[in-house]
Each structure stands twice: as C-alpha cells, then as structure tokens.
Design a protein around this nucleic acid. Structure first.
Lengths: 153, 153
DNA sequence: GTCTCATGAAACAAATAATGTTACATGAGA
DNA sequence: TCTCATGTAACATTATTTGTTTCATGAGAC
C-alpha cells in the first residue's frame, strides 16, 4: 500500500510558515514538499476550513498561520485533514456472516482500536509550538547558518 | 490507500482448518475468503515456511495446521506474513536534509512506534486457541447448527 | 502406467487509491 | 488592465494490492 504522507507534509510546511512570519505561496510550499502547488492547496484546504491557516490572493498573497501554535496539537491537524485511515491492515468484510470471521475481526479490531487511541493520544500531546522548539534545538545543535531555516531540499 | 487484509483472511481460514481436522484444499479455502486459490497459496506460503501449516499434493491433499494453537499468537502469524506495514500514514522522505522535516519525522515516528509496539503486544497476547475458544462461545450463543461451523459465506 | 487432483511458482492483468498535472475561473494588488 | 495568487474541477500517472492465467511437479486412484 502506498502510504499517506499528508500529515507529515503539512506539518513540515506549517513549521516553515511559522518560521517565515510572512505569507508563503503554494508554489513555494510545494517546492519545500517536493510536490505540486495544487496538491498543497488541496491539503491546506482542510486546515483553512478549520481556521488554522489563512490564504490571501494577489500580489504578496499566500498562506499564513492564524492559530496559536501552543494551542494546536498534531491531532488537531490530523483531524483537519479529515482523519484519514491510520492503519494499512484491515478486514476483508466488515460484517461477515461467518462466525469464525466475526471472532477474528472482533479480536483484531480491539487491538487496532487500542493502538489507534494511543497514537492519537500521543499526537494530541504534541503542539506545533513544541515541534518548533524541537526544530530550534536541532538548529542550535547543528550550528548551521540562517539559511538552513529557510529550506534545504 | 487500499488496505492489506491478509492477516484477517489468513486467521479466518486457520480457524476453519482447526475446526475441520482434515486437509482443506486451496480452492476450498479460497471460497471461504472469497478469493482465488492462487492468492491463498501465496498467503499460506509464509505460514508454511514458518512451520505453522503443511501442504500436501494429490488426492486428499490440501492444507493442515501443524502447530500447537495454544502456542502460536496472532503476532507470530503477522510475522510469518512478512510483517507487512502496519500504518497507512508515513513520511514523504525518510532521510530529509531539512531540519524542520527531521523534527517532524522524529516526533511522528516515536508516536507511531509506540502505537505499533502496543498493537503487536496485543496481537502477541492472543493465541489461535484463544481465538478458537472465542468462536466456540459465539457458536454456542447463537445455538446454530453444525453447518454454521463449516462455513457461511 | 496413466489419469486426475492438488500444490508451486512465474508472469501478467485488473482494481484501487494516492499523488501529480492541466485548465480555467476568481479575486487582490501594482 | 495586467500580473499574481488561490479555488476547483477534471484528468493522468504511479504504486501497490489483489486477481488471473499458465505451466511444471508430485501424489494418489484406477
């Protein structure tokens, strides 16, 4: 299965937007994510609807963060993306008539649900601000130049 | 993403094989899983290599369980399948040069790893025998006929 | 011995879902 | 009014799982 990298991608550009402090165009964000501007708009649409970011048209337009990074968690972002499926593993049929398959599904499902709850709980414990702080630590540890912040492919 | 239903499917037929007590052909197993005999052989190959099942050619041939159901867990089966990817969510690039993306990946990865560990731990706590027992409970609760065991599509 | 049943494996086809691309409409500013 | 930038729909591409065909091989029935 090909995996869904939207959460990873959108967090990446969100942090860049926080660092930038000025509107960034879809095209620029697309470069950072090595993808297409339309893909960026598609992904960002959910965050815009959730009020986390704002988009502006015309000259000097682009995307800006409009939420408090300390108040928004990775789980919030995940939900804004539409809460995409977490697992690559699943059942063949959701409501099987076969009692054996029912037993199998019940057992698997409880395990998957527990794991998903833990995952979302962990995502809910990390704020955008915490992620940004983690980045700054890495930045200092590397003693890089200011250029490293803007972006290295 | 299209999800991988091999674990669910193989557990399903394993329980049927335990109930049957005699070799079942790939074709019969395929009917139970609503799939193709070749797909069944492909999936079962891993279990055969792991020594959990045995296959016999010719008349009266087919697949039989050769392990102790009380000693094999769902995690063992998962591993025998080749430990397929658990999550549908992932990173865009595994080793990004961008420090921001590194910070994002690190945070996400620790959350995913924890969730995966919990999942596998839960799967490791359930044996095939326990699953079979669960089935028998469901069977009794339904007061069905013996026919229900063999299979209902 | 030969026929049928069954697995083993390779190669190919179909289906599906994520991602990429093109095209055009709309609105904001120079 | 020209350019920049987003919004959206429609379509193309790609990756991956699943399904299918085909042929070889071995085991038992006759």
């Amino acid at each position: 299965m090909r995996h869904d990298s939207r959460l990873s991608g959108v967090l990446h550009v969100l942090l860049h937007m926080l660092e930038a402090g000025e509107p960034i165009t879809s095209e620029h964000l697309a470069e950072m994510m090595s993808t297409n501007p339309v893909v960026v708009r598609r992904i960002m649409a959910g965050l815009r609807d959730a009020g986390f970011v704002h988009s502006e048209k015309g000259h000097g337009g682009g995307w800006t963060v409009t939420c408090d990074p300390a108040a928004v968690t990775l789980d919030d972002i995940y939900v804004a993306l539409g809460s995409p499926p977490v697992f690559a593993l699943g059942h063949r049929s959701e409501n099987p008539a076969c009692l054996v398959e029912q037993a199998v599904n019940a057992s698997l499902e409880s395990a998957f649900q527990e794991a998903e709850q833990l995952l979302l709980k962990r995502l809910g414990a990390v704020t955008l601000a915490a992620l940004a702080a983690d980045f700054h630590q890495r930045y200092l540890a590397k003693r890089g130049t200011k250029k490293d912040i803007s972006h290295a492919v």
